[in-house]
Structure formats: C-alpha cells, structure tokens
Design a binder for these strands. Structure first.
Lengths: 213, 213, 213, 213
DNA sequence: TATGAATGAGCTTTCATTCAT
DNA sequence: TATGAATGAAAGCTCATTCAT
C-alpha cells in the first residue's frame, strides 16, 4: 500500500532517471560541452527550470550519467563471479562470455564508451581522476580473475596480475573505440582478443614463457 | 641564400610552433574547454589578438596541437622499420624497444595521451572521428609489424592481424592512462605487456594455440 | 456569536499575521532581495504555494510587513498625547519618555529600522515614496508636539516647527542606525539627545536664543 | 610627454569613471536591484560585455559608486578644517557654511543620499556594514568639530560629543531624505537646523543647561 | 484549503572573435 | 605585424508565480 509520499518519491526517482537518459542521449550526440541544459529539457518536453529541481547543476547530471553508465558496465563484468572457473577451459569460456557481453553492450550503445571514458575526462581534474579511478577499479576486478587463475594453477605462476589486468582492460577499451567508428564482427573480435590474451601472438613452435634475452 | 621572405616565413613558422607548444601546455593543464585563447597568449607574453594571425580559431589550434602530438607518437613507432626483424627474438626485442620508447614518451609527458585521445574527442564529431582515424592509422602501423611476423613465420599463421593490432594498441592506451594516474615501473610494464602479447596468460604447460572449444 | 465564517476569517487573519512575522524575520536576516518566498514558507513549515493564498505576491508581503512595523513605531510615539504637556518640564519629561520607549523598541528589535526605512526603499519608486511619506507623517506627528509647546509658550515662539520636527526625527533615525551597528547606552543617548534638542550645544554663558550675527 | 601607455591608462580611468557615473544614474533612477548591467551599458552606448573589462561584477560597480559618492560628501564636510573656529560665532558660521554646502549638494543631486545610505544597505551584510561604518566615520568627523568647540570653551563643557555628533548627523540625513521628496527652502532648513543645534527648542526664558528632573 | 512540481522570463557572466590603431 | 579594447551570442542558473491534485 504505497502512501502518497512514497508515490511522489517514486515519481521523482523516475523523473531523475528520465533526465539521466535524456542527458546521456544528448551528451552522446553532441558532447557534454556542446549540450545545453535547454537541450536536455527540450528532449523531454519540459521547461529547463525543471531540470534544476532534480540536479544541482550541469556537472551534477554528468556525474550521474557517468555513474549510471559505469554501473551498466560493471554489471556485465561482475555477472560471472571471479572465482567460478576451476580449469583453463572454463576460465577461457568465462572470459569469452564476458567478452561477448561487453561487445554486445558496446554494439547496443556505442556511445557508452564515450560517456564513461571520454566526455568526463575533459570537464575538470576531479572528474578526470574519477574516470581514471573507475578504470582502475575495473582493472582491479579483472585482476581478481587473473589472481584466481594463478591460484588455481592454470595461469602462468609468474603473471604480473596488476599490469596484465590493465593491459587486458586496454584491449576492451580498444574494442569500444573501434566500435565507435565501424561496426565489427563480434565473433572475430572476441576470438582474436581471447587468443591474444591466452596464447599470445608467438608462433606455437617458437612459444616460450620466457622473454627474449 | 635565404631571402628576407623566407626568413619572414621561418619566423612565422617558429611563432606557430611556439603557440602550438603553449597551447599544448595549457590544454594539458586544464583542458581544451577550460582554456581561453587569452591563456595561451599570456603564456607567451603576447597579445591575444596576435593568436589570430597564426591560427584561424580556437579549434584550429587544437587540430594543430593534435597533429603535432600524433607525429611525436608516430615517430616513435615508426623509428623501427616494420620489416626489420627476421626472427622471433629480434621481433620481440624490437617490440620491447618500441615499448620502452613509448613508455618514456608517456613518462616524459603524461598529458600526451590526453591531447591525442581525450581532449579532441569532446570538441565535435569531426575531431572525434579524426582521433579515431588516428587510432586506426596507428593500428594499421601495428598491423604491418604483425603481418611481417606472420609472413616470416614466427608469428601464428592464423593471427587475425587486424583485430590483434587494435588490441595491442589498446594495451598501449592502457599504459598511457595508467601513467596519467600513477607513475609506473617501466621495466615491469613492458615486460608484462610483451609477455602477454607474445605468450598470453595461459600456464606454460596448459598453453595451446587452440582456443577452448 | 462567532459564526463558522467569522471563525474561518479569524484563522485566516492569524495566518496572515504569522506570515508577516516570518517575512519580517527573513527580510531582517538577509534583506528583501535575498529572501525567497520559499524561505518565508519554510520558516513556517508550510508549502510555498500556500503563501499565495494569503498575499498577492512578494511585494505585497513587504507592504504588509512595512505597515505592520510602522504601526509599532507610531504606537510608541502616539502613546503620549501631543497636547498633554503644559509646562516645559512636563514636556521634556514626555519627550524623554518617548525617547526611552523608542530606544527600547530599537534595542528589542534593531532590524525594525531597516524594515521601515531601508529595505522598502530599494524595491520600487512607489514603495520608496511610501517610506518617505511615512517619515513625513511621523514628522507631522512630531510637529504637533512642537506646535503645542509653542502654543503653550514654553518653546521658542519663532520655532520653525516643520523643519525642526524633521530634524528631531533625524536624531531618532541616527539612534536607530547607531543601534544597528553597536549596542548603546540608553540613558546616555536619550540624555544627550534631549539636551541637544532642548538646549542646543552652545555654552550656557554664551547661549542666547538669537543666532550668531 | 605622455607615453602611449599612460595615455591608455588615462583613457581606461576615464572609462571607469564614465561607467561609475552611468551606474550612479541608473541605480538612482530604478535602484540597484532593478538595474541590469545591460542598462548601464546601454546608457553609455557600449556593449554590455565591455562593462566587465572595467569592473569585476555588478556588486563591484556598486562599491565604486558608493565610494565615489561618499568621497563627494566627505569633501564638503572636510573642506572647513575642524579646528578653524575660535569663537562661538565663528563656529556657528562654519556650521552654517557646511550646512549650506551639504544642502546644495543634496539639491544638486538628491539621489546622492540614496546611493550612499539606501541602495547598498540592501545588497548584503558586508555592504550594509560598510554604509554604517561610513556613517560612523562621518559622525567621528562631526565629533572632531564638537570636541574642538568644547576645548575652546564655547560649547557646553558637559557635551556628550559622541552621541551628539551622531544626532547632528541624523539631522543632515533628515534633510537629505526630505529633499528626496520635496524641494525645500535652503535658507530655512539651515537656519532652523543650526538654531536647533546651537540653542535647542526651549523658550529663551525657560532655557537651562540641566535636563529636567 | 494546501501543496509543491513545473515553468520561463530574465539575469549575470564568459569568451571567441573582430578591427582600429 | 602586433595589440587589446570592444562586442554580443550564448549559456547557466534563480525564483516568483501558476495550477493540477
């Protein structure tokens, strides 16, 4: 039995979400700096004063768009538990699943990348730091997966999990950027990326774990 | 025999370069949108009207800063000719050399990354496309190296050079971003990244060229 | 026999008064222009839409605050009837009584001065005129006292009652302003002001009714 | 031989003064809060952006208008040196001179009062305090005159110079306010005010230095 | 009657760009 | 060629007021 107060709160919450979505669309379309509050409001058919009932200022909405978008990303990565895989094959399958999911996310909304990593970078130092922190957090997540693999023994014992996690995340970023420009073959991307990740590029015969010396 | 005209042209060219450097510094410090023409001019101790004798408008200087910065990046990658290596060990050594060089570049000027890939992304669609095109071009360059390795037989014959090149470039981007936040151990980064690139993460015993099926 | 209608009217009247008091407090605290309708409503714990059920607009409430405040001032001055005193001593005592009373009023609420003479002056021409008219009315009241004294023969026969009344009121204003800044000794102020008013500043020996010639 | 730099500085200084005058006129006409920067600029036929080359913000111009106006007031009071008079007659003549001069100032520009004491009072606490401080400073100046008279023996020995000075200043304020409403007879005002100031209102026969008790 | 969500006029302020000197 | 004063478009933000509930 929802009281009128909770109903009002729900309505307000829905409104906030609407604005977040509209802002996402506008920012994605023309960029944060080329978007006015009026543009966001117009997209929702509401007065631009109304915007300020829900968000403190322009930067505030960007923060919320960012958070909202990062959550979507994080959800995909976190869906598969880091400790789930017990064999290399399982692990690889898990990575592929995540890869496919992220790829689909990027395909569904190619601007997602931009909203998470590009637009907020050029607003102010604090937001830039926040983006980088997010990137760091996602690398930490990736590292969990790697650590698990090392612990279980199916990943190289001498793996530098920290740096490797960041490098792997870099591949994901590259995929995202690539999709901003041209549609890509999902299968091919994930296959090539996992191949690179697990096996490297060295010829099978020549391959050794040791760096050249 | 420099005529007074060529001398004047040289002087103008030097001035343009000065402005590009000043703009780079200002943009790096507080971002394109938070930098005014006056800031750039002030840094050079020149009147801000003078700026417009050398560049058409604010966007124009960004384009030049971008180009100039990308050239620096490209120079590093292109220093080693793609076709130079003839064995895996040579190839790997070459990659490491390039890796060290890029790393040093990022350390020397961590904002380089931002100027190439971040700031121009949020100005307008055309500049964003340009950034992505640049990224594409550098991937193409990387691909040349990979193709060469495949041709020579020391890289996997079935390597998807296109996607793999992009993914490798993603690692570089990750390194650059990482350096924006925290200084990193050059040795460790390059070692881990090349290990990942050449050998993958799979345990030595378990490693096979074949993807899980 | 209060009908329900008169009861409702009374309730409404009480509400109006509450709002007037709240508005006085807010205006006094941060000035008319820095106070929003929402501030006044919040102070009463009521919705700010409700305000408009009692007052036509923001200016309207100021008018009512002004009137209400002027009434308080006027009541003090009018308490002693202008014609009551019949001798100079009585008259002087009356002036002192009024002086003490006004002083107490200012001490009790130093913002009273501001609400009567300052805030409304900077809203629009009509309100400014109204403030000046009020000042004129209070001078007229003062003049009544002076006229009475002249008529009774204990004030200078040649007294310019009009201008003198205004000048005397000016002293009161000065006292009010002074209290806005620093607390003052009531005794001292009233004593000095009445001494000035009745006897002037000229040395006793030198004193004559005649202006210097 | 004015260098081009001093010429430029002079020009800028003249521009600033022009703006101060225009702002004075606009503020006087419609009040600080009802005046937009655009109004001030329009009055000078200049773009409103130009305003910000000379003043930091709207409040800033008010501060300058205030200072400029107070200086005009102060100049009048300070013209006659406080210690100049040596006899009561001289002193009274000096007071009358100052009275005439102030009166003329108010007649010439009745809004002067409003700019000094009214408009800045309702902007923020700091400006209000500043107005009151100015009032205090002018009272202090008046007190100097009174002290001098007491020292020389032609004013009451027991004069409370502090309070009396404030009260006398109150008369001046009253005159100023009065002139905002209706033109007044200069002769009459000064005569009545000095009479009040020097001799008080008590009838000649009845007059005594002692307060009634 | 009471409410507060919605509104948009209107303001201040910034800054890229122009142009007379 | 160099300058910086002038400009006004454009944007963010506030808040008095309205009105559906």
């Amino acid at each position: 039995m929802p009281t009128s107060e909770t109903k009002a709160r729900d309505l307000a919450e829905r409104r906030r979400l609407e604005i977040v979505h509209a802002a996402f669309a506008e920012f994605a379309e023309r960029g944060y700096h080329n978007t006015g509050i009026a543009d966001i409001a117009r997209r929702l058919g509401m007065g631009h004063g109304t915007f300020y009932r829900y968000f403190a200022n322009k930067r505030d909405i960007l923060v919320h768009v960012l958070d909202h978008t990062v959550d979507r990303l994080r959800a995909v990565v976190a869906r598969d538990a880091p400790g789930a895989a017990t064999t290399l094959a399982e692990y690889r399958a898990q990575v592929e699943r995540i890869g496919y999911a992220m790829f689909d996310l990027f395909v569904e909304d190619p601007q997602l990348m931009r909203m998470c990593f590009v637009e907020p970078m050029s607003v102010d130092a604090e937001l830039a730091e926040r983006v980088l922190a997010t990137h760091g957090a996602m690398s930490a997540l990736t590292e969990e997966y790697l650590r698990n693999g090392v612990r279980r023994g199916f990943l190289r014992a001498d793996l530098d999990t920290d740096v490797t996690a960041q490098a792997v995340n870099g591949m994901v970023i590259a995929a995202g950027l690539s999709l901003l420009r041209t549609p890509a073959d999902r299968e091919r991307w994930v296959r090539a990326a996992t191949a690179l990740m697990f096996d490297g590029i060295a010829g099978a015969s020549a391959g050794g774990a040791e760096p050249a010396e």
